[in-house]
Design a binder for these strands. Structure first.
Lengths: 144, 144
DNA sequence: GCTGAAATCGTTAAATC
DNA sequence: GATTTAACGATTTCAGC
């Protein structure tokens, strides 16, 4: 991955739909050269995927929160994982070092839905002994 | 935003570079109809942006962490904001309710760089009185 | 708001440097 | 690896529904 690849990735980060010909003009490289570099960045897994970032407020997710979860024993991990992967409102799930085992980033319509997620989904998983929820007031930066 | 828009967004979430003609085949709508819907979803800000998700391990960011920050007084927010927006390793910054004022999601090469970020960048901001860092061991889910 | 057709523009593959 | 050319495919525009 050289300087040129970095420039191309920078442009794609700002606009993932930018065409190879548009990029070609900006980086002073021929169109096939640009396409080939993008293909190789995908092949080598530097590029994970192209995606679209939605405006959460516009799609009814006005509330963002982080939920710390303490899972009693490792034998409950599989069930926990299954529940998390199925829950659409859970955007991220990280296995953590420290006082809590997992940290979830969740996007919901409001506190009512948050309450339901915590008490009816997360706390229903066997082994979940403790949770700690932190509410986001606003976000000044959010990248991938 | 109707059912059709949701189907299109779902496809674009999986592949942000999917062409209108590819989408057209999958949702049984003409190509111009698909293009027009995508254009309107962008115009109405439901679509925030098209972007590329990079594989952090492949680009030398093997360490992911969350840093809680306590900021003494509101008059230091502007300086704090400036530093955060400039720091490439800070992926996210959320203003929080609760014990800490801000929560950062950071991606770095390792603990050495983390130490430098905390002591030479974050703690240098006037008003930062306390931080608390949580290390990510692995991530089982990560969407936008 | 969708469709179909035509013109424009972008992509891909092969040959060459 | 990059470029050029030419065939192919996608997008845009617009008339008509």
């Amino acid at each position: 991955m050289d300087q040129m690849d970095q420039e191309i990735l920078q442009l794609l980060k700002i606009n993932g739909r930018m065409t190879s010909s548009e990029i070609s003009r900006q980086v002073h490289l021929s169109v096939p050269a640009v396409s080939e570099r993008i293909r190789k960045l995908e092949e080598s897994a530097v590029i994970d995927l192209f995606t679209v970032k939605l405006n959460r407020e516009q799609i009814g997710q006005q509330l963002l929160a982080f939920i710390m979860v303490q899972l009693e024993k490792p034998e409950h991990v599989e069930e926990f994982r299954k529940v998390i992967l199925q829950a659409d409102s859970v955007l991220e799930c990280h296995h953590m070092a420290g006082a809590y085992d997992y940290m979830l980033k969740v996007a919901l319509s409001g506190t009512k839905e948050l309450e339901r997620l915590i008490s009816e989904t997360i706390k229903q998983v066997p082994g979940v002994v403790k949770t700690n929820t932190m509410i986001v007031l606003s976000s000044m930066k959010e990248e991938m």
